[in-house]
Nucleic acid binder design. Sequence first.
RNA 1: GGAGAGGUGGCAGAGUGGUCUAUUGCGCGGGUUUGCUAAACCCGUGAGCUUGUAAGAGCUCCGCAGGUUCAAAUCCUGUCCUCUCCGCCA
Length: 422
Amino acid sequence: MLDRKFIFDNVELVKKNCANRGVAVDMERFVTLELLRKEKQQQLEDLNRRANDVSKLIGKSKLPDEKQKSVEEGRIVRETTAVIKNELDKISDELDKIHRAIPNMAHPDAPIGADDQANLEFALGKTEIPKFDFEPKDHVEIAEKLGLIDFDGGARVAGAGFYFLKKEAVLLEIALQHYAVENLMKSGFTPMTTPDLARNDILQGTGFNPRGNETQIYSIENSDLCLIATAEITLGGLLANKTVDTEELPLRFCGISHCFRTEAGAAGRASRGLYRVHQFTKIEMFAFTLPEQSDAIHQEMLQIECQIFDGLGIPYRIVDTATGDLGGPAYRKYDLEAWMPGRNAYGEVTSTSNCTDYQARRLNARYKVKGEKGTHFLHTLNGTAIAISRALVAILELYQQADGSVKVPLVLQKYVGFDSIS
RNA sequence: GGAGAGGUGGCAGAGUGGUCUAUUGCGCGGGUUUGCUAAACCCGUGAGCUUGUAAGAGCUCCGCAGGUUCAAAUCCUGUCCUCUCCGCCA
């Protein structure tokens, strides 16, 4: 969430930002409601003050008549309070709905545009796009020939979009995790395996909508738990309703979790095979920082992603995400898109966002400066180190050989113990 | 799954319906004394919101949500979490 006061004081700026991001928000209504809310709150405070005074009066009074009179007044104050409180609740509810729909402000340098067409490619990875002297196959075909993935089995057990990894693919998954975690630890990230489930309010705090028609989240019946879509949710929740001291910052975490996504309405050729699935394993970076640190750490996360994919010998481009394509909490977002010969196109493999204080405000995650009064909201950042399924797509398609075998990227060979799958 | 105990400020821990402000200790900040340090002593120390140029003033917060009452940390209901014991279990 944005600061309510900030919105109120910067209506035109926020309107412009919403327009850039393609989010429709009734700002006039917001202003009206905010004024009403203040008025009601003032009334309520006056009533509370009177109620306190009356209680004290009764507590001290010795004369029965006087006491009786005050009790009567107290009763009237209580009834009036209930009425005002009810009105205030209604106003607050509606205000809150609008408030939550307002996205984060965008970085002034983020490209402005309605959708991903406006995303700005601004750098390439170290690896060149390979030229094949044969017709490259897509990862589904490759995996099938080598017996690496069982899509039919996955569909039978859990439905379309689920799969079994088999044989060398399993070792590759483990190797990718090991490789990513090792890299992140070198950069000062604390590795954590996280719960694969989280409460509704933690989902909401991180900006995910756990229930409802448009949700991408699986929820557990008869409980307030959901399957997480990313470890960003659980790692962000770590500091929900907490205040940390300045000297502990920045906090860098490396989350290892499964990710579950309903991917409603995403079927089609472009999401074939492992590219868009309901469950995958992901190594995620997450950081809590001071406001003045977050831009630098965002760059740091991007660099780590580049290192990881350069290390794997995967060609990619870096994209600065356009305003209209940013998620609600993101202030700025960079994606790495790997070259995938099977699609003959780039496909997203990582994403790193600076969410500034937008998530922290909802989560109520704060920091305190020693010797100063009061607290402030942290900044939060997240970034994919490796999403296993997408990384496997890229590796299988890029490292395929004319004879149908697949070479193992050099950096993974020490973990898997072989250099080729055939 | 069953039984029990608990959740109060950074921490510990009192507080069974009204005594102007949630007692006290530790910790923390400042000061006094003092060759230095320590000890001792004194003063001050939670957060959020509203209002105000400011000094200040006011309201809210005792896990969370309801309820009873003129008045709730305290009584009632629900709920979440933590701990102990028992059972089951990879």
